[in-house]
Computed example of a mutant assay.
Amino acid sequence: MSAAAANPLDVQASALERKPDQPQKRENKQYGLKFVGAAISNMTASGVSNPQDIIKVRQQLQRQIPGAGANSFWVVGGKMLRTEGVTSLMGGFTASMLRELVYSGLRLGSYEFFKDKYYSASKGALTREGLALKVMAATTAATIGASIANPADVIKVRMQAYYPKGRPYRNTAHAFASVFREGSAGKIGTFASVQGGLKSLYRGVEATTVRGIVLSTSQICSYDHIKQMLKRGGVMQEGLGLHLTASLFAGLFCSITSNPVDVVKVRLMTDKHRQLNGVLHCIKEILVHEGPLAFYKGFGMCWGRLGTHTIVSFLTFERIRLLLGIDPM
Rank of each mutant, 00 (worst) to 15 (best):
S2H: 13
A3M: 11
A4E: 13
A6Y: 14
N7G: 12
P8D: 11
S14W: 11
L16P: 01
D21K: 08
K25M: 10
E27P: 00
N28W: 13
K29P: 00
Q30R: 09
A38N: 04
A38L: 04
A39L: 07
A39Y: 09
M43P: 05
T44A: 15
V48G: 08
N50I: 10
N50R: 10
D53A: 15
K56E: 15
R58A: 12
L61P: 04
Q64M: 12
P66I: 06
A68C: 09
N71Q: 10
S72Y: 13
V76Q: 05
K79E: 15
L89W: 04
M90T: 15
M90Q: 13
A95E: 06
Y103W: 14
G105L: 05
G105P: 04
L106E: 07
R107M: 15
L108I: 15
S110Q: 09
S110N: 10
Y111E: 11
Y111Q: 13
E112G: 13
F113S: 05
F114N: 06
K115R: 14
K117F: 13
Y118C: 09
G124K: 02
T127D: 05
V135T: 10
V135E: 02
T140Q: 03
A141Q: 00
I144L: 10
G145S: 01
S147I: 03
S147W: 05
S147C: 08
S147R: 00
A149V: 04
N150D: 02
A152N: 07
V154N: 02
K156I: 02
K156E: 09
Y162F: 14
K165E: 15
R167L: 15
P168Y: 13
N171R: 09
A177H: 14
V179G: 01
R181F: 13
R181A: 15
E182T: 02
S184T: 01
G186V: 06
T190S: 15
F191Q: 12
G196N: 03
G197Q: 02
L198Y: 04
K199W: 03
G204N: 01
E206F: 10
E206G: 03
T208E: 06
T209C: 02
V210Q: 06
S218K: 03
S218L: 11
Q219N: 12
Q219C: 12
S222V: 11
Y223L: 09
Y223D: 05
L230K: 02
R232N: 12
G233H: 08
G233Q: 07
G234V: 06
G234E: 07
G234C: 07
V235L: 13
M236P: 03
M236E: 08
M236R: 05
Q237P: 04
G239T: 07
L240P: 06
G241N: 15
L252D: 01
I256V: 06
T257R: 00
S258V: 02
V261N: 04
K265E: 14
V266H: 06
L268I: 04
M269I: 04
T270E: 12
L276P: 00
L276Y: 07
G278D: 05
L280F: 14
H281G: 06
P292D: 03
Y296E: 01
G298P: 01
M301F: 13
G307Y: 01
V312F: 09
L315Q: 10
T316F: 14
L323F: 11
